[in-house]
Each structure stands twice: as C-alpha cells, then as structure tokens.
C-alpha cells in the first residue's frame, strides 16, 4: 500500500472513531465525514476561501445546532499549537462570514485530539484572548475586517476542546447497549 493511501486510511479510521465517540454521548449525530462528502464538511471564510473539517453533524435535542470537528490523530504534540491557532482564526472567520450575510446558524467548532498541547495555557485555549491572539497571527482570515469582540465572545462559547484516548472505544458501551439507551431517552433526532 502506498504511504499516502495508508495515511488516508489512518485518517479516516481516526475520524470514524471520533464519530463513534461523539455519537455515544447520545447528544450528537455526525452526518458526514470529509471522506463521505467533502462539500458538506466545508465552511466559507470572510476572504471567500474554503475551510474543510473532518466531520460535521448536529447537536440533538431541543437546541439543535451544527457542529464541525477537526480530528487530530497525533500521538505527540506535533504541530498542534500552530494548527490550533489556525483552527481558531478560521472558526472566527467562518462565523463572522455567516453573520455578515445574516445567516448565523450557531455553528459550534470542536478540536479532538489524542495528545495534549500548549499545556501551560490549556484551560485558556477556548478563551476570547486566545481567539484574538490567533487572529493576530492569521490576519488573512479577516480579509481586512476589524475584529468584533461580540463575535469573539459568541465564538468562545461555541468552542470545544476534547481529549480522546486512542483506547477510547474500550470505554464505550457497545452499539447494541447504546441503542437500548437511545430507546429510553427518546432524544429528538435531526428530523
């Protein structure tokens, strides 16, 4: 198998594990992965460029809103500090772009990783301050717009930073068990 193909499979495998992990919470239905339909996992930035995520889905229940997920299958810190800054800047840009066309769908953004990074400021990684700092580093994502603190505030509340162990699946209920729980909860689906 070619190296690129092997990496591709590994990436899809990691995305599917993250999907199962998120759906096992019973709060989320991941409807598309980038491997299924790339267009569905893509958002548009202020500068018109496209930002592609690994997964997209919907938070279930009464407060339904879209979710876009970046999955990092790293076993080390790797390039995560820099990539995460880009993730924050992109999230601001796509949110601001939605608002600029009066189409705020309350999209939430999730970063799932198997290895922690930027541990000295881990608890601050979803704060307003980090978003503004990330935008400083990636000003191109603003396409000349001024940073709007109200959008920054909203975005901070819509960010998720999640640690997932590579052996996470061993802690999950089986799908048969989860389906039983699902039957009891009767949580409203995506409709």
């Amino acid at each position: 198998m070619m190296v690129a193909e092997a990496e591709h499979r590994k990436g899809e495998e990691g995305a599917l594990l993250a999907k199962r992990f998120l759906e096992s919470t019973t709060y989320i239905n991941i409807t598309f992965s980038v491997y299924d339909d790339a267009a569905q996992t893509t958002l548009i930035r202020l500068d018109g460029k496209h930002k592609r995520y690994d997964l997209t889905g919907v938070f279930l229940g009464d407060n339904r809103r879209p979710l876009f997920v970046e999955v990092k299958n790293y076993n080390n810190v790797g390039n995560q500090p820099a990539d995460y800054d880009e993730f924050l800047a992109n999230a601001y840009s796509t949110t601001a772009r939605d608002m600029s066309v009066n189409l705020d769908r309350s999209v939430e953004y999730m970063w799932i990783t198997r290895h922690p990074f930027s541990q000295t400021k881990w608890s601050q990684l979803t704060s307003d301050k980090e978003i503004i700092a990330a935008l400083d580093k990636h000003a191109d994502t603003l396409n000349g717009a001024v940073v709007d603190s109200s959008i920054v505030r909203k975005l901070a509340d819509r960010l998720w930073l999640v640690m997932m162990n590579s052996r996470q699946e061993e802690f999950l209920l089986t799908r048969e068990e989860l389906f039983l729980v699902h039957g009891v909860l009767q949580r409203k689906g995506i409709g």
């Binding site: 239905n29 991941i30 989860l178 409203k188």
Partner: peptide, 10 residues
C-alpha cells in the same frame, strides 16, 4: 425512516 442519518448505532 428514522430521524438519524449515517449514525453509528441508530
């Protein structure tokens, strides 16, 4: 048809 799509267990 259910209210779920491409879900892992529903």
């Amino acid at each position: 048809t259910t209210e779920y799509f491409n879900h892992s267990y529903v």
